[in-house]
Amino acid sequence: MHNVKRAHSPEVSRRGFLTGFILWVSAAIGAIITVPALGFFVSPANKISTAEKWIDVGKLADVKIKSPTAVTFNIKIKDGWVTSETAQTVFIVREDEKKYIVLSNQCTHLSCKVAWHPDKNEYICPCHNGIYDMEGGNISGPPPRPLDRYKTKLDNGHVFILVKE
């Protein structure tokens, strides 16, 4: 009733003014806490590392042609206040003497790790049965795109790949 009446009259009562004033000051104080807190909350999501590094994944000559070979290496990861090493696996695939590719072992569906099955000539993801051919192309299952390929270079017979740090 009070509110309805005041909405039609330009006059503001002392009580109405103070109530409004206190509410606005409270809202301002709330914002002073909430805004920094939100920044604090999302902070790590805004720190995306763009650093890249060439990593030696072994001699090309050690990999047999048409036989994808899993190579595991360690990369250093800065994780908040901890710097740790994690193992990462890739497949080196030689199509012939000269042509080769390096594939990620991470399924493009929901990031499980795929394994090479030499008997079937397929990479199979154990999570949801995503199946890829030797070059990482999709055969069946839920994966939306082929396995990711790394940028590569050959130096002194060694394969190097460009890895995000």
Partner: peptide, 25 residues
């Protein structure tokens, strides 16, 4: 914050220097 002797001090350094407005909170 991480309540372990190995990480407590470093995690607070992280809050103070790396987290957005961490020094303020």
């Amino acid at each position: 914050y991480s309540p372990s002797p190995d990480h407590a001090y470093d995690s607070i350094n992280y809050i103070m220097n790396d987290v957005t407005l961490g020094w303020l909170i």
